[in-house]
Nucleic acid binder design. Sequence first.
DNA 1: ATCGCTTTTGACAATCATTATCAATAAGCC
DNA 2: GGCTTATTGATAATGATTGTCAAAAGCGAT
Lengths: 132, 132
Amino acid sequence: MKRNTWQRDAVRAALDTQLGFVSAQNLHSSLRTTGSHIGLATVYRALSDLASEGEADSLQSPEGESLYRACSSGHHHHLICRSCGLAVEVEADDVEVWAKKVASLHGFSQAEHVVDVFGYCSSCVPAVKESA
Amino acid sequence: MKRNTWQRDAVRAALDTQLGFVSAQNLHSSLRTTGSHIGLATVYRALSDLASEGEADSLQSPEGESLYRACSSGHHHHLICRSCGLAVEVEADDVEVWAKKVASLHGFSQAEHVVDVFGYCSSCVPAVKESA
DNA sequence: ATCGCTTTTGACAATCATTATCAATAAGCC
DNA sequence: GGCTTATTGATAATGATTGTCAAAAGCGAT
């Protein structure tokens, strides 16, 4: 049976306070900073659980870390700021349709897709010339 | 100055023989199997170089490994078989448009996107019931 | 073809995120 | 209050990737 522990609640709560995606390591640090004595492995477990229960979204950063974020339920995608980590949930009906079409066109089944847009949010526009 | 070494060529060649995405580790094994004495670190370096020169595509597997594949130049996305690794390059004009629109709508600049579809190709359809 | 300067290699150590281990602890149920 | 068992947490283990650095090539000039 699944039990309710304060650790699990703490992780959920900590995740809620975050505006963007966080790594398990970072979330653990945050929790420690706020005085919690929660263990690192527990944070990993809690995040992993939350993600599989649909209470959190997870994605891989370009560096290969797993990042998590509290999310509204349902299928959606993200627009993520490379600088501050701010994440905006976006609808992508067009993309859903496209993904299904492409998959079936090539005989693929059980298609899932990874769709995320990375950029700099209006507060973080870096002082970089238009070079690319 | 950048030098031409047989190692670099070997990695390029090995990558060309692959139908789908491979990890650096796997590619290294393959090379060893074919008799090459190339070092692991060198394979990592070569792949990383190829990727930044645009001669290879790279993406993160759901497990967090970096996967590489020789690719045609230009921007495109992939339809990847979870079982055999087969990767099909697909156009995604609709998605390009959508990504730009969403980014500008939220004030994001320098937007890049990650769009990949994972599924099972027709040869790999697993004997799994429609449970999800 | 050789010399010399530099880049590249490769074996191995180091790093870093994540997972496994397992005894101690604490939930939920009686 | 106890009992049973899931959960915790400190730490070890794992596994991919990167750093290190002496030895081994590349490439241009001679």
